[in-house]
C-alpha cells in the first residue's frame, strides 16, 4: 500500500527543548492511525510539522507526496486539520465560519455541505451564534465540520473527542471509522488510549520527542493484550523496550 505520510529523521527543536527527535514513520493509505504519547511528547508538534505550519529543524516529511516543509500550503489544501487548541474566529457566526472556510478552500456548494454537518453533529440551532459565544463542545463540532467539509483524502486531528459528550463521541467515532472504510486516511493524535484501541488500526508511540514504537493495534491485542497496558509499560521503561 502507498504511504500517505512519510517522515525520515524528522526533528524539531525549540530553543533548548527537543520536541521531535529524529522520527521516522510511515502511514499507509486507508488507515486510521493513532499517534499516542503522554503530554508534551511531541504529538502536536508532529501534526504542525506534517501540515507545514512549522518547519522541521532536521529530516523531512512528505504528505500525500508533497514536501511538508516546502509545500505546506498545498498540503493544507488537500488535507483536513483539527488543531488541538485553536478556536474558530470570535466574531463570525458558526455558519459564517464554514462559509469562510468554503471561500478560502473554494468550495462551491458550501451552504449544502454545512447544513449536512449541522445535522450530523446536531448543532443547527447554533449556526447563527457568534463563535466566541459557543460552548467548547460546539466549537469542537465546528472545527470538526471545517476539517471534513471539503472531504479530504487525509485528515490530521489533534485530540478529536476532546470536549464532546459521550453521545457525540460515539457519533464521531462512527464517522471516523466509516470515513476510513471509504478509502481515506485519518491521522489522530491522542492520549486517550482506550479510544485509540477501539478505532485505530495502526499506531505509533512518541515519548519525549522520540518514536518508541510503531505497529498495528491488532498485533498488540492479538493475544488478549491491551493497548493501554502496552503503552504504559513502554513509556514507564522510558523507551528501553
Amino acid at each position: 500500500m502507498a504511504a500517505v505520510i512519510e517522515t525520515k529523521g524528522l526533528s524539531k527543536v525549540y530553543g533548548d527543548v527537543t520536541a521531535l527527535d529524529s522520527v521516522s514513520l510511515s502511514v499507509e493509505k486507508g488507515t486510521l492511525f493513532g499517534l499516542l504519547g503522554p503530554n508534551g511528547s511531541g504529538k502536536t508538534t508532529m501534526i504542525k510539522v506534517l501540515t507545514g505550519q512549522i518547519r522541521p529543524t532536521g529530516g523531512f516529511a512528505t504528505v500525500l507526496g508533497l514536501d511538508a516543509e516546502k509545500e505546506g500550503i498545498r498540503v493544507r489544501e488537500k488535507v483536513g486539520i483539527i488543531p488541538e487548541q485553536e478556536s474558530p474566529p470570535s466574531f463570525l457566526t458558526a455558519m459564517e465560519y464554514l462559509e469562510f472556510v468554503g471561500a478560502v478552500r473554494k468550495i462551491p456548494d458550501i451552504g449544502e455541505r454545512a447544513e449536512k454537518w449541522f445535522e450530523l453533529l446536531e448543532f443547527g440551532d447554533k449556526k447563527d451564534v457568534l463563535c466566541k459565544d459557543l460552548s467548547r463542545g460546539t466549537r469542537q463540532k465546528l472545527m470538526f465540520a471545517q476539517a471534513f467539509i471539503h472531504e479530504p483524502v487525509l485528515a490530521l486531528i489533534d485530540e478529536p473527542l476532546i470536549n464532546l459528550d459521550p453521545v457525540m463521541q460515539d457519533v464521531v467515532k462512527e464517522f471516523l471509522s466509516d470515513y476510513v472504510r471509504k478509502g481515506n486516511t485519518i491521522f489522530v493524535s491522542t492520549h486517550i488510549l482506550e479510544v485509540a484501541e477501539e478505532i485505530c488500526s495502526g499506531f505509533a508511540i512518541l515519548h519525549k520527542g522520540k518514536l518508541l514504537h510503531a505497529g498495528s493495534v491488532a498485533d498488540v491485542t492479538a493475544d488478549g493484550g491491551h493497548l493501554p497496558g502496552f503503552f504504559l509499560s513502554l513509556v514507564r521503561k522510558g523507551g528501553h523496550a
Binding site: 474566529p89 463570525l92 457566526t93 455558519m95 459564517e96 462559509e99 469562510f100 471561500a103 478560502v104 447554533k126 447563527d128 451564534v129 457568534l130 459565544d133 459557543l134
Partner: peptide, 27 residues
C-alpha cells in the same frame, strides 16, 4: 450571552470578490 447575527460574510465577500483576499477582508 449568546449573540446571534444574520449571515453577512458570504454577501460581503462576494461584493469584495474583485480582491484576491476577499474572505479575509470581509471577516
Amino acid at each position: 450571552l449568546s449573540r446571534t447575527y444574520r449571515r453577512r460574510l458570504g454577501r460581503l465577500a462576494r461584493v469584495l470578490s474583485f480582491l484576491p483576499e476577499s474572505p479575509i477582508v470581509a471577516k
